[in-house]
C-alpha cells in the first residue's frame, strides 16, 4: 500500500475543503473498498479524509418516505424496521451482500461508490481502460464470464458490483450530494454513468462531492418488492445476475412496475422495456414471461458470459412471479 497522509474530518465543510485542495485526496468511510484497492495499488491516494465522524449516520422517517444517512452501516439499514417493512427489496439486497463482518463496516455512500470487481481492473499488471485509460480492455477478448451483457462499450465491459444500488433503483431512490455549489439531489438512475469512451468516470460526482444521504420515497410498489440474487455460491459472493422487482397490483392489473438488474452492466441497470411490458397489464404468468423476455432486449454476450442473457430472462420471470404472488 502506498504511504499517505490521514485526517479525520469533524464537519463536512473541512472534509470537502481538504479534497478541494488536493486532487489525489480521497474520502474513507468503511474502508472496505478503498483500503482493498490501495493494497492492490489500484488506488494511490495522497491523503485519506476519514468522514466516519460526520453526523450522517441517521435512518429517519420523513413525510414522504425514509432518509438514510450516507454513513449508515449496511447492517444497520438492513435491520431497520421501516426499511424491512416498506422497502423489503432494499433489506434483502443488503442481507445478500458481502458478509456480516463487512456489512458492519461498509456504509451506504461507500457502497454506491464502490468500484468494479473486474479482475483486470484489480490487477495493475493488466490492460484496463478504467484504471489506465488508453491501455485497452483485456476482458473483451479475455476471461469475461462475469462481465457485462448490456451497457458496455469497446472501452469497458465491467459490471457494477453493488446489490444495494440495484434495489435502490427499483424504489426510485434519490441521492443527496453536497458539492461546491451547495446541496443537490440526483435520482439514482442518473447517478452512475456508462463507460462510453471515458470508463474512468463512473458517477456524476465531481472530485470532493460528498454524498450526504439517500432518500427512499414511499410507494405501494416499494412495499411489494423483492430481490433475487443468483451467484456461484449461496452466500458471501457477488451476483452473476440479480433482479430487483417492485410491483403495485390492484384489481388484478399492474399499476406500477420497476425492474432493475445487477451483474449485467457497468452500472445498476433499469429494465425499462420490461417495465413497459408490465404496466397496465393483468398480473399473470403470461405477462411476466413477456416482460422477462423484454428485459433481455439488446443484450449481447462476449462468449463466456452468454449464459447471463438466459439467466436474466429466467431470474426476471421468477422475481416477477414472486412479487406478483403467483408463485
Amino acid at each position: 500500500m502506498n504511504a499517505f497522509r490521514y485526517a479525520q474530518a469533524r464537519d463536512a465543510a473541512s472534509a470537502m475543503a481538504a479534497l478541494a485542495a488536493d486532487p489525489r485526496a480521497r474520502y474513507i468511510a468503511g474502508g472496505t473498498n478503498v483500503v482493498d484497492l490501495m493494497k492492490e495499488g489500484v488506488e494511490r491516494p495522497s491523503l485519506l479524509v476519514d468522514i466516519t465522524q460526520l453526523p450522517l449516520r441517521g435512518i429517519d422517517r420523513t413525510a414522504t418516505g425514509v432518509r438514510v444517512g450516507a454513513l449508515a452501516l449496511m447492517s444497520d439499514v438492513a435491520d431497520h424496521p421501516a426499511i424491512a417493512r416498506d422497502y423489503p427489496v432494499v433489506a434483502q439486497a443488503l442481507l445478500a451482500s458481502a458478509s456480516p463482518q463487512l456489512r458492519n463496516m461498509a456504509t451506504i455512500g461507500g457502497n454506491l461508490m464502490q468500484r468494479t470487481r473486474c479482475a483486470y481492473f484489480r490487477d495493475v499488471s493488466q490492460h484496463c481502460n478504467k484504471r489506465a485509460p488508453g491501455t485497452g480492455c483485456a476482458a473483451i477478448s479475455g476471461v469475461n464470464r462475469r462481465h457485462a451483457v448490456v451497457g458496455g462499450s469497446e472501452q469497458c465491459i465491467c459490471t457494477h458490483a453493488s446489490d444495494l444500488a440495484v434495489a435502490l433503483l427499483s424504489v426510485d431512490a434519490i441521492v443527496h450530494v453536497r458539492g461546491r455549489a451547495g446541496e443537490r439531489t440526483v435520482p439514482l438512475e442518473r447517478f452512475h454513468v456508462l463507460p462510453g469512451s471515458t470508463p474512468q468516470r463512473e458517477t456524476v460526482l465531481e472530485h470532493g462531492d460528498l454524498i450526504t444521504a439517500v432518500e427512499l420515497p414511499a410507494s405501494a410498489a416499494a412495499r411489494n418488492s423483492y430481490y433475487l440474487k443468483v451467484r456461484d455460491r449461496a452466500s458471501y459472493e457477488f451476483a452473476l445476475v440479480s433482479v430487483a422487482a417492485a410491483l403495485n397490483v390492484a384489481g388484478g392489473r399492474i399499476r406500477a412496475a420497476r425492474v432493475a438488474l445487477g451483474g449485467v452492466a457497468p452500472t445498476p441497470w433499469r429494465a425499462h422495456a420490461a417495465e413497459a411490458a408490465l404496466l397496465g397489464r393483468p398480473a399473470t404468468g403470461g405477462t411476466f414471461a413477456a416482460a422477462a423476455e423484454a428485459a433481455t432486449r439488446g443484450m449481447k454476450g462476449y462468449g463466456q458470459n452468454d449464459f447471463k442473457i438466459v439467466l436474466v430472462r429466467r431470474a426476471v420471470n421468477r422475481a416477477l412471479q414472486h412479487v406478483g404472488a403467483i408463485a
Binding site: 504511504a3 499517505f4 497522509r5 490521514y6 485526517a7 479525520q8 474530518a9 464537519d11 465543510a13 473541512s14 472534509a15 470537502m16 475543503a17 481538504a18 478541494a20 485542495a21 491523503l47 479524509v49 461546491r180
Partner: peptide, 21 residues
C-alpha cells in the same frame, strides 16, 4: 478561485503521516 473560496471559510484539516504517528 471557487476552490479557494470554499477553503476560505473553513479551517484546514490537520493531517498526520505519511510517517509514524
Amino acid at each position: 478561485c471557487a476552490l479557494a473560496q470554499a477553503a476560505a471559510s473553513v479551517s484546514v484539516l490537520p493531517a498526520s503521516g505519511p510517517g509514524p504517528m
